[in-house]
Design a binder for these strands. Structure first.
Lengths: 356, 356
DNA sequence: TTTTAGATTGAGACCGGTCTCAATAATGGA
DNA sequence: TCCATTATTGAGACCGGTCTCAATCTAAAA
């Protein structure tokens, strides 16, 4: 009795209309909530729909309206706490605005990113939020945008792409912490990032395709130059793409005769690895080595000593990007917005004077 | 010259067919990759499609095939590293199998979960992976499953739902660590979980609606009983839903005359908060307090001391659930699979003899 | 009471694919 | 060379909604 027949074939407006004894058009009107219907008919149709357990088919609806009610999100890696928090911001806004989110990881690989965009385009998403793997390769994004699809860039911008962009003031943040380290007497300051170059070595900031990281490195190098430190390019290390890579790089660094007295980690995953390795070397932070990490990850406050970090408004990054996109989706036109959210240095105890 | 006209109206198979000088049916055949076409025609159509920059419309395709190529994923909170890692496992498998993922957070709220299911049903997802907020309220899931939609449960099962389920051996894990604590002389052992009850107090394991947590508590209480410890129900604390709640509960606990000598944290977010609070009290782990946390979060290995944890195969949980779902989607029938993945205790340094 | 603007309702086209079925062309065996 | 098969192709229905337009109805205005 409680087991209704397993209906493999779903009930449609036509079914409801038939049961209610009205035309398909009328049933569609009350079910779809548009047009004008008499109260009596509305009741009959509603009752029929309930009796039949009618479920609207969004696919069919999208077919005619041209809107899918979904937004596509392409991030590097949802497993990274940075992105998972940003995505939380996006989904919260999207849900509230009546949109649903299709999530795809690019693994920071441009080819995968292109494939993702293609898939999303085929699914006819109403809008796109992307954290581009490479600023230098955004043709696929430009094309999507030019075809009229609203696009918002997350955490990484592109000068050549005139679309809504939400980033953090990475350069400023990097300048701040570098200045601080220099003031404390540090001269051998290493900057460590997951971004890679073809030969896995750093030459100039232009080699760095990830906008946010490039700006940080430019800030870092700029301040070093001001302070009269030469050839600090040699202290920028790229390719910390996995914890194994990071471990290898940090190990080489700490074993070197010219061991750095301070390390700036470009994200919390790298920062964590640096922290792990420094202990294996029996070094102590901050006496032997100062450490600053980007991203105020949860672990940074419970280590001994706790780690000084650049706190980025990660949730806000996603939230803002989604809000801009939703505004576009609601027809708000106008110039592309380029929003820069403020970061903040959270002073803890991993930074001190350079060892004598 | 390089700026192709911004086509607001997308090109369809009919357009391609017209340009290629063939019928819509024929163009559709080569574009859709089905049926049989002569090589000559294939070439002409392909060329026309390229010239027009034809992009298939998945929505329209779904309309006739009845398959959307998407799977819906409902988790508590993507921001939680547990879920973000599991989702990574899901998306990896889904992508490989040609499916796209629609992600919705339930916030561990049944009403939100129901709404999510409804949305996903309307979007005509091909399958569903859900981490149910409450085992006691799964009617909406049962209904979805009964209507023929493949469903896989993640991390939390339901005896009354006969669907593919992937969980960890939570009871066994809880028994193991409890036994260990008891053997070290602990008698005042607190178990702390985010799951809540109507009156925010724990009475019996049946009050706990989250399957994984209930099994852990049953394991915990079972071992305590074996060891002759009475009324350990009083040591189970529920409602650590936010860090503020957790902080309040832990603070009360540590201030009490009957201060626990060991705490078991039901997830890493709670474990982190316990770690933070214990320090503010000037207590030291493990001398004054032993701590064990579920989920081998990254921070647990870098604290001083590092924290002993129950390592769950989180990525594997998501991966396996997705694989089971994909198998169903490919038509594999048969009994519902109930897979239990093994956990492992990672012994670090936060557990020691109970203080005298 | 007749006229008429406005409210309701029904028919049917349409969105952009897939797919069936019949018609036509090409190939092979007797 | 003729007929049976098989390969290609075109027409048009269909999926489940939305939406336009014309027809019918209702009630207020004259």
């Amino acid at each position: 009795m409680d087991q209704s027949p397993p209906r493999n074939t779903s009930v449609t407006v036509a079914d409801v209309a038939h049961k209610a004894g009205v035309s398909k058009a009328t049933a569609a009107r009350v079910l779809g909530g548009y047009g004008t219907v008499s109260d009596r008919v509305r009741e009959v149709v509603t009752a029929a729909a309930r009796a039949l357990d009618y479920r609207p088919n969004e696919i069919a609806r999208s077919m005619t309206t041209g809107r899918s009610g979904t937004i596509g999100v392409v991030v590097g890696d949802i497993e990274n706490p940075f992105f998972s928090l940003a995505v939380r911001g996006i989904t919260d806004v999207a849900r509230q605005a009546g949109f649903t989110v299709i999530l795809i990881n690019s693994g920071e690989d441009v080819a995968a990113e292109k494939a993702a965009i293609r898939t999303l385009l085929a699914k006819r998403v109403d809008g796109l939020i992307v954290s581009p793997a490479k600023e230098s390769e955004v043709e696929h994004l430009r094309e999507a945008s030019r075809s009229g699809l609203p696009l918002a860039l997350l955490d990484r911008g592109s000068d050549t792409l005139d679309v809504d962009t939400v980033i953090a003031d990475d350069r400023h943040a990097a300048e701040g912490i570098t200045r601080r380290l220099v003031a404390l007497g540090h001269r051998r300051i290493a900057y460590l990032t997951a971004c890679d170059t073809p030969d896995h070595r750093f030459h100039t900031a232009d080699d760095i395709n990830t906008g946010s990281v490039r700006r940080r490195i430019e800030g870092f190098l700029g301040v070093c130059r001001e302070a009269g430190l030469a050839e600090m390019e040699d202290w920028v290390h790229v390719g910390a793409v996995t914890s194994e890579h990071t471990r290898r790089i940090v190990t080489a660094m700490l074993q070197s005769a010219q061991r750095p007295t301070a390390i700036i980690a470009s994200d919390s995953v790298i920062g964590l690895e640096v922290f792990k390795v420094h202990r294996e070397f029996g070094l102590s932070i901050p006496e032997d080595l100062s450490l600053v990490s980007f991203h105020d990850a949860d672990w940074t406050s419970v280590t001994t000593p706790p780690v000084t970090v650049v706190r980025q408004p990660v949730y806000g990054l996603g939230e803002t990007a989604a809000k801009l996109l939703v505004a576009r989706l609601n027809g708000n036109g106008g110039e592309a917005n380029r929003i820069v959210l403020r970061t903040e240095v959270v002073d803890r105890a991993s930074v001190a004077d350079a060892p004598a």
